[in-house]
Simulated scan of single mutants.
Amino acid sequence: MTASISSPDTLETRTFAPRCSIEQVEEGQGLAPRFDEAGLLACVTTDARTGEVLMLGYMNREALEKTLQTGRAHYWSRARQMLWCKRASSGLVQEVEELRIDDDQDVVWLRVTVAGSGASCHVGYRSCFYRRVPVGRQPEQGIGLVFTQSGKTFDPEQVYGDAPNPTQL
């Protein structure tokens, strides 16, 4: 069953269903998300047109509620410890075309269209998954990442200016 989002105006504030039974969670019609011990759900975000994986993010209760209410992707930034809407500083708005939840309701999948350059990665690439890891090699050979995108879609310095980089060491 899919929860298609047609427009922000057609959605109302939703309260999540309680998790009463395995049958209700797996086969029922109520949205009863299972947030982890940190209060988060993993969220896989793909391009609605191509199916390409754009990013993996996390949602807390507020981010999921705001996504449902507005039709725009909201996430919880683990690095910044704050709610963020994908667009606040970049203009790369993610409009949700479809929101799905997995069988035990602990992972969300968003199918989105992205405004502007169509990119979703803060580094400037279209997708956050812009490198491939070769498999089947012996560890002593070392692991060299292979770029899968020919170049950046936008210049992060022009888009973000002097905003702090969210990547943590």
Results as ranks from 00 to 15, higher is better:
109 W>A: 07
88 A>V: 09
42 A>G: 01
92 L>I: 00
123 V>I: 07
50 T>N: 10
33 P>Y: 07
113 T>H: 10
85 C>N: 05
115 A>G: 07
73 A>T: 08
32 A>K: 11
139 P>R: 07
9 D>H: 12
31 L>F: 08
5 I>L: 14
5 I>P: 00
126 R>G: 10
9 D>E: 15
74 H>Y: 15
65 E>Y: 02
127 S>A: 02
156 P>Y: 06
86 K>E: 08
158 Q>H: 03
106 D>V: 00
19 R>H: 06
124 G>Q: 09
137 R>E: 13
116 G>H: 11
3 A>F: 05
42 A>H: 02
132 R>Y: 12
130 Y>A: 01
31 L>E: 06
63 A>F: 12
134 P>V: 02
142 G>H: 03
154 F>T: 01
40 L>G: 03
123 V>G: 00
132 R>C: 08
88 A>M: 03
72 R>Y: 14
99 L>H: 11
36 D>M: 04
65 E>Q: 15
45 T>W: 01
106 D>A: 02
83 L>C: 01
166 P>L: 06
32 A>F: 07
121 C>D: 13
27 E>S: 12
39 G>S: 09
84 W>S: 00
132 R>S: 13
64 L>I: 05
72 R>E: 15
54 L>I: 01
111 R>F: 12
20 C>N: 15
128 C>T: 04
24 Q>N: 14
158 Q>F: 00
110 L>E: 03
105 Q>I: 00
57 G>R: 01
73 A>V: 13
75 Y>N: 02
157 E>M: 05
139 P>D: 10
71 G>S: 13
44 V>I: 15
129 F>S: 01
26 E>C: 14
77 S>N: 04
44 V>M: 14
114 V>P: 13
133 V>G: 04
123 V>T: 14
29 Q>W: 10
169 L>C: 06
13 T>H: 07
93 V>I: 09
125 Y>D: 02
16 F>D: 09
143 I>W: 11
151 G>V: 07
108 V>K: 05
16 F>G: 11
162 D>G: 07
119 A>S: 11
125 Y>N: 06
143 I>V: 15
36 D>V: 04
39 G>C: 09
60 N>T: 12
49 R>I: 08
10 T>S: 11
13 T>Q: 09
98 E>K: 13
162 D>S: 14
168 Q>S: 13
27 E>F: 13
22 I>Y: 03
94 Q>G: 07
58 Y>V: 01
133 V>P: 02
134 P>R: 07
29 Q>F: 10
128 C>D: 09
150 S>V: 02
78 R>C: 00
43 C>Y: 07
143 I>E: 13
130 Y>S: 04
17 A>C: 11
136 G>Y: 08
103 D>S: 15
157 E>H: 13
105 Q>C: 08
40 L>P: 03
88 A>P: 00
49 R>E: 15
3 A>C: 00
168 Q>D: 09
143 I>C: 12
63 A>M: 11
159 V>A: 14
80 R>I: 02
106 D>R: 01
19 R>Q: 12
99 L>G: 06
115 A>L: 02
48 A>T: 11
116 G>W: 07
39 G>N: 11
26 E>S: 13
121 C>P: 05
59 M>L: 04
106 D>G: 01
133 V>T: 14
83 L>S: 04
36 D>E: 09
29 Q>E: 15
30 G>T: 10
136 G>N: 10
107 V>L: 11
15 T>W: 02
7 S>Y: 01
98 E>Y: 03
38 A>N: 14
36 D>F: 03
13 T>S: 08
57 G>E: 02
139 P>V: 10
115 A>S: 15
